[in-house]
Computed example of a mutant assay.
Amino acid sequence: MGNEAGEWIIHGVTWDDPKCIHDVDEAVEYINRVGFLPLFKNEIPGFSLEERTVAEYWWSDDPVRDPWRWRIAIAKRHDVLYGQFFAKKAGFISKKWLPVFANYRRDGYDFDALFEDEKAPIKHKNIMKQLYPEAADTQIRKILK
């Protein structure tokens, strides 16, 4: 989304464009396939939910077609995370890609080492326990390597 001459512009595609994502299920499938996806247009042309949806449906309040509403539905599914991951800008990361993304952002630390060196707060450890309940504290390291 860009501000051009004081007007906010959504850069989308047409409904019949082969790149078009039409609903939440297609969005989740695409995010899981590519691993992560910014919500809005960025430096990489075509690599955002905005640029793969129909511009007219944004903020239409139609739960089936409005990509702005999809972010909430996607986050509730628990297989894709929604947050400010990309230079404090919103986007999605698949649960499968979260460990790779997190390790990159942690400058090579695995989570347990990061926590032990007091570079991650307890709230982050609690989030990890929610995301990976099957892992004991000592096994989180193995999952996130």
Rank of each mutant, 00 (worst) to 15 (best):
K89W: 13
P99M: 10
R141V: 10
I143L: 15
V54S: 01
I93T: 00
E26M: 14
I10S: 04
L49G: 00
H22E: 07
E29R: 09
Q130F: 06
G12N: 04
D17G: 06
K89A: 15
F36P: 02
I143M: 14
A102C: 07
N42L: 08
W97S: 11
P45D: 10
D66Y: 07
I122M: 11
E134D: 14
S60T: 06
M1G: 05
G108I: 06
P121A: 13
F101L: 11
Y82E: 06
L144P: 01
D25F: 08
L37W: 03
Y132G: 12
E56P: 00
E134S: 09
I140Q: 03
T138Y: 11
D110F: 10
T138K: 15
S94P: 05
I21Y: 03
D25I: 14
P121W: 05
I74A: 00
P121V: 06
V100F: 13
Q84C: 15
V24S: 04
I140G: 00
Y132S: 12
Q84R: 12
Y109W: 12
K129S: 07
L144T: 13
R33K: 14
I44S: 08
A87H: 12
E43I: 05
Y82V: 14
R77G: 14
E134M: 11
N3K: 11
F92N: 03
K19L: 14
K145C: 05
E56Q: 11
L37H: 03
W70V: 05
W15K: 06
D79C: 11
I44F: 07
T138V: 12
F85D: 01
R65T: 04
G108P: 08
V34N: 11
N32E: 14
L114E: 12
F111V: 13
I140R: 01
K76F: 04
T14K: 14
I21C: 05
V64I: 11
D23F: 11
E118Q: 14
F85T: 03
S60N: 02
W70R: 01
A75P: 01
R77H: 04
G46F: 09
K89S: 14
C20I: 04
I44V: 15
L37K: 01
R141N: 08
E51P: 00
A113N: 08
F101G: 06
S48P: 01
V28I: 15
G46E: 10
